[in-house]
Simulated assay, not measured.
Amino acid sequence: MAGEFVVEPDVAPKDRFAYYWSQRGEWVEEPNRRRGGESGVQRIQAASGQLFYFKRQTGHIYRSWLHPFGRPTVLRERDALAGLTQLNIKVPKLIFSGAERDADNKWRALLVTAALDGFDELENWYAAGGREQYGEAVHDRLLAEIALTLARMHQGRWQHSCLYIKHIFVRVTGDGPQANVEVALLDLEKCRRRLTARQAAHNDMTQLRRHSSFSTADWEKLVYVYEKAFGSAIKGLR
């Protein structure tokens, strides 16, 4: 792992991008070419011992009617992190984000977030025996918390746009049926606001159904809580 860094450096705001950009760590997602540039993720440990993830991009942009000439995707992810946090949805804590053009007028962009301590991918939690360890009552509460989290996101008109089960992280702590259940969402690079909550809901929930391994019974439980919290049924979920 790379050398340590200071989370809040004693440097002027105008120099912070250069400071964070200069940090180096181990690649957890090797740079890959897409969207006209490269994007990858490094893991770096701070002097405190806490882990941070650096999404590092060059020329990696998206275009929209607001940004027809292109905008770094990490800035869209930064906006989503802020928006979901305001909705009381657990997401990685934002430490720093920024973008600038290099000497060749190509975008360089960076997003630094803190690791979600104690959280794990939902499928990893299943594979490690979490369901058997905590029992069906806790598992039902976990499904309900996932449903409530997603409904809250969609009511805020945020669409994840890449809602696979691997992007749902969970943390279950304590013992017995009173164990504490928490849910977090990751990989918000494609997350965006929609005109209506129903648009956001339909896209994400049908996508999650296609790209998840929930049993029919578990999916029915999740959808029941989701539609009750969302306020209406979503076509194609059953």
Rank of each mutant, 00 (worst) to 15 (best):
M1Q: 09
G3N: 07
V7L: 14
D10H: 07
A12G: 02
A12N: 14
K14Q: 11
D15C: 08
R16D: 06
Y19M: 08
W21M: 07
S22N: 13
Q23M: 15
Q23G: 05
Q23E: 13
R24E: 14
N32G: 14
G37E: 13
S39D: 01
Q42C: 03
Q42D: 04
A46D: 15
A46C: 10
A46V: 07
S48L: 04
G49I: 02
Q50P: 01
L51H: 13
F54M: 03
K55Y: 04
R56Q: 14
I61Y: 05
R63Y: 11
H67R: 01
P68K: 05
R71N: 05
T73N: 03
R76P: 01
R76E: 12
R78C: 10
R78I: 03
A80P: 07
I89L: 06
K90S: 05
V91K: 03
K93S: 15
L94F: 13
I95P: 01
S97M: 05
G98W: 14
A103S: 13
D104N: 10
D104S: 09
K106W: 08
D120P: 00
D120R: 14
E121W: 04
E123W: 10
E123P: 04
N124K: 12
W125R: 01
Y126Q: 08
A128P: 03
A128Y: 06
G130F: 02
R131T: 00
Q133G: 01
Y134D: 00
V138N: 02
L142G: 00
A144L: 01
A144S: 13
L148C: 14
A151F: 09
M153C: 00
H154K: 10
Q155E: 14
W158A: 06
W158I: 02
Q159E: 10
Q159P: 02
S161A: 15
K166L: 03
F169D: 03
V170C: 00
R171W: 10
T173L: 08
D175T: 11
G176Y: 00
P177L: 01
P177C: 01
Q178R: 11
E182M: 12
E182K: 11
V183G: 00
L185V: 13
L186T: 15
E189M: 09
K190C: 02
R193G: 13
R193K: 15
L195Q: 09
T196C: 12
T196R: 12
A197W: 03
A197S: 14
A197R: 09
A197K: 07
Q199G: 11
A200N: 10
A200K: 04
A201G: 14
D204S: 04
T206M: 07
Q207N: 09
L208T: 07
H211L: 14
S213L: 04
F214Y: 12
T216I: 11
T216C: 03
D218E: 15
W219V: 06
K221F: 01
L222I: 04
V223T: 08
Y224M: 09
V225H: 03
V225W: 04
Y226W: 08
E227K: 05
A229L: 04
G231Y: 06
A233H: 08
A233Q: 09
G236D: 13
L237R: 05
